[in-house]
Structure formats: C-alpha cells, structure tokens
Amino acid sequence: MAASEDSFKEKLTNSLTQQLSEYELLKSMYPNNDDIILTDTNILVDITNFVENESETEYTPGHLDFILNLNIDGSKLEVSVNLPSFYPSEEPDLYVRCNQLNRYQETTLNAELSNFLKENFVGEVCIYSAVSWLQDNLPKFTEQLANRASAYIIPESKCTDDDKFVRLWIYSHHIYNKRKRDEIESKAKDLNLTGFCLPGKPGIICVEGAGSDCKEWWSIIKSMSWKKIVIKMTETFEISEKEKEQKFHKFQEIHFPSSSVRSKHADMSGLSKYMDEHGLTEIFKNMFGISEI
C-alpha cells in the first residue's frame, strides 16, 4: 500500500513540477498582470508546497486553472486553460474565445486546435505550442472562414427530428473548465433551452427544447476539446406535449450544499435527489445502470 502511495505521489510530483515550469515560461513571456489570470490565486503556493514536500497533510492540490489573454494581429483571444493533475500525461482542457469570430468560426478554431494537440503532443507539455499554433492559424479564421461560417453546422444523427420536443442527457468524463461551463450555459440560454449542468467528474448535462435548437447546441458543445463527451440518452416527444413533459423552466449550473469545496468529483447523491424532485427517478437509474433489487 505504502509503495503504491509513493508511486502515486512521485508521478503527481513529476506532473506538477512540469506544470509549474511551463507556467513560469508563460509568465516570462506574458508578464503583465492581466495577461495571465489564475482562477485560484493560492493554487501556485499549494502546488509548490506539495512538490517541495512541505505539506504535512494528505491534501492533494487542485488543478492549475487560468485564463491567458492574447492579442494576435489585433484580435483579442481569451484562452481558458485547465490542467488535470497528471498533465502532461493527461490531455489539457483548453477553450479559446475570440470576440472577432462568430459562433461557427470559434467552434471550428477550437476543434482544429484540439486535433493539432492530440496528433502532435500526447504526453508532452503543449500550452506554449497551442499559443504558437493560434498565432500561425488565427488569420485563416478571421479572413478565410467568413464565407463558410453560415454553412458550418455539424450533422448529428443521434439528435431527433427538428419538429419534436427533445431532452438530451449528456455524459462527459469531466467538466472543470470555467469557460466551457459558461459556454454550455450561455449557448443553452441563447437557444431557449432548459435543463442543467453538473460540473465535476463525471460531468452531467441535460438540455431540453425544440429538436433543431438541441441539435445546434450539441454541434457547438461537442466540438470543444473533450476527453470524452457523449449523448447517453435521448427522450423525444411530440411538440404538443411540451407543456406536460418539460421538466425544467430555465438552464442553470447546479451544485449541492453537501459537496466538499475541494472535491473535483460530481455529487451523485445530490444529483439523484435533484432528479427525484423533478420526476426523473427512472431516468437517473437508466443512465447509471441502477436496477431495483
């Protein structure tokens, strides 16, 4: 047991050491206070103490999560970065937002960046490489994609007919990144969808609304960089049944009071109770393979 714990800590220490080194490189390149903004201002101290073995508790530091603000040829980019504990062995969670791009250009940019990193930097630090790729490739999105943007909609065979009332149940390996969470919620509200997002590991999302709107929302969200994200279940109703079948009246990110502030894991017990309250007990059991004994 002790050997296993030592191996875990050695692997984690090595990962976090590489993360600190890469972060310091970025800080040397972008030294202004508003260039890099940490989500948790204490995280660097926590990670450093862990790496230097100064922490006397069993506490494992949280994720290094920050916003990198870039200006490339007059275009302002906000790069949301979330590094899993074992990055670079695990893939980083990146999402780029640029006000100069429309929704489809932005979605395409993130999809191509994700593919570039997966194809070239598995197991290697890659945030600076991502920045370099953005510097080299952003012009083609701002200049060449304008005429193609309106045509860029990813087909989704699992989404149902446009004239139906649809509820999608979506499972992700994890949802940590604040920018992604904001996008999940803002896109749902833009399309008049209702439901919820439970961040953590795993991440659970429910969206309900017109089939065409659900399809558009899913095409945008699934094109972000994810370790795994799938539609686990689809419920379909006639549009005339909407008033009876709709379970939510707005879209929101949900949290539960019993959850640990430090925990990165989703509160499944809280989710079970939440779904019970909305008349979705059977859906919860079906999603997670729970059967009556």
Rank of each mutant, 00 (worst) to 15 (best):
E124S: 03
D73I: 07
C98D: 07
I127L: 13
I127V: 12
V81W: 02
H63T: 08
Y59A: 15
D136W: 07
N115F: 15
K76A: 15
P84Y: 02
I67M: 11
N99P: 02
T108E: 12
F86L: 15
L117I: 15
Y59Q: 14
K118Y: 09
E78I: 12
E58K: 04
S132R: 05
V122C: 09
R97N: 06
N115C: 15
V81C: 06
L109Q: 13
L138E: 03
N120H: 09
V131Q: 07
V125H: 04
L68I: 08
L134K: 08
S132K: 14
T107A: 06
I72H: 12
P88L: 02
F66K: 04
N99H: 09
E54A: 01
T108H: 07
L70R: 12
E124D: 02
L101K: 09
C98T: 10
E112R: 11
S132E: 14
F121T: 06
L113T: 14
Y128Q: 09
N71Y: 04
W133P: 10
F116N: 12
S75Q: 15
D93G: 00
T108D: 05
G62H: 03
S129W: 00
Q100Y: 01
L109F: 15
S55M: 06
S55N: 13
S55C: 10
N102W: 09
Y104Q: 15
G74Q: 10
L134I: 12
P139E: 13
I72R: 12
L117F: 09
V79D: 05
